[in-house]
Structures are given as C-alpha cells and as structure tokens.
Amino acid sequence: MAARRALRAHVEVVALHVSPVHAYEGRPADGPRPDPEPASRDRVEVRAGLGLVGDRYFNRPAHRTAAVTVFAVESLERAARDLGLAAVPSPLVVRRNVVLRGFDVDGLDRGAVFGLDSGDGPVRFEAHRPAHPCGWMNAVVAPGALTALRGRGGLRCVPLDDGLLRLGPAVLTT
C-alpha cells in the first residue's frame, strides 16, 4: 500500500454547531425539537477524547470515537443543485459540528488524522466512520435530500488535542 502524501489546504470554517439536545428525534412530520439555546457558535472549545464542550455527545462513552462530526458544505450545495432548490439551506440544518469549505471531508480514510488550525493552534482529529445522513434530511432540507446526501454526510471523529476552533479561514493538514 502506498503512503499518502501530507497535505496542507486552506479551508474556511463556515459553521460551528454545538447543542446540548438531540433535535432530530421522533417523527420528522412533527418537526425538530427546538434548541434550548442557539446552536450556532463563533468558536468552540475542543477537549481531547471528549468532544466539544457543551455538545450533547461530550464525554459520552458510547460516542467517544464519534463525538465530533465534520462536514463539507459543498456536499449540501451539491444536494441543493441536484434537488433544484432555489437556495442552499443553512449548513446548520445538517447538525454537523464543524462545517468546512474547501476540503473533501468524505474522501478521508478511517483512521486518518487531520488537523485544523483556525488561528489558535492546530487541533487534530482522527476520522472513525461516516456520519450517515438520516431521514430527517428530507424534512429539514427538502424531499430527496437523504438520497442526495448519501455518501456525503461527513465523518465522525475523535479529537486528539485540546484547543479552539473559530469561524473563518483555517488550515487543514493531513
């Protein structure tokens, strides 16, 4: 097996999402549960092995290797085009913690380690498994969104470092 080359890419962190509750429970026809506080963040605090401070999966043993989800906004933009939507929905509707522009998140292999530095030093993550979209996507994006996002739902990761991530320009390294 050939070794992968190290990569350094300039990306943008377009959305950060932290919520203490799981909004997509029950039947999509009933609509999502409202967040008790705004889920959108300008910055998030990352804790190695635990996740994002304040998030519903922080320090949950069952989610240690899946505590942080990372998503490429281009996947949502492509789904919107494929579905003929007049506008691209907010990246917050996919409920992924870190939404990036400029990198094919779904192209990373399981076990891949990547770092994000948005100005406060690098924070490394290890990719563990795909973050498959759920049926709620048909309710919150548009009918057909589940199929349009299949294979492009992002990755579930474990943070390897403590640190901060902020909205805006960042550098991603592999």
Rank of each mutant, 00 (worst) to 15 (best):
43 R>V: 14
101 R>L: 11
60 R>N: 08
69 T>S: 15
52 L>V: 09
128 H>Q: 02
172 L>I: 07
114 F>Y: 12
57 Y>P: 08
54 G>V: 05
29 A>D: 12
132 H>D: 15
157 C>M: 04
7 L>Y: 12
124 R>F: 09
79 A>P: 07
32 P>T: 06
19 S>I: 03
23 A>P: 10
123 V>E: 01
87 A>V: 11
99 V>S: 08
144 G>Y: 09
84 G>L: 09
16 L>S: 05
88 V>L: 11
17 H>C: 10
42 D>V: 13
5 R>W: 07
171 V>S: 13
170 A>T: 08
123 V>H: 01
83 L>R: 08
150 R>Y: 12
112 A>H: 04
59 N>R: 11
157 C>F: 00
146 L>F: 15
133 P>N: 11
109 D>H: 13
18 V>N: 03
131 A>C: 15
58 F>N: 05
8 R>N: 13
47 R>E: 15
141 V>Y: 00
48 A>T: 01
147 T>C: 15
125 F>E: 00
97 N>V: 13
56 R>H: 05
123 V>S: 00
155 L>V: 14
11 V>I: 12
27 R>I: 01
152 R>G: 10
24 Y>M: 10
171 V>A: 11
47 R>K: 08
139 A>K: 14
126 E>W: 04
149 L>M: 15
83 L>S: 06
19 S>W: 01
26 G>L: 06
26 G>N: 04
60 R>C: 11
58 F>K: 04
102 G>N: 05
57 Y>Q: 05
19 S>P: 00
22 H>D: 10
4 R>W: 06
46 V>M: 00
154 G>E: 06
20 P>E: 03
55 D>P: 06
23 A>R: 12
156 R>W: 07
74 E>L: 07
147 T>V: 14
10 H>M: 12
27 R>K: 13
110 R>C: 06
44 V>C: 01
22 H>T: 12
40 S>L: 14
26 G>Y: 00
71 F>R: 04
67 A>S: 12
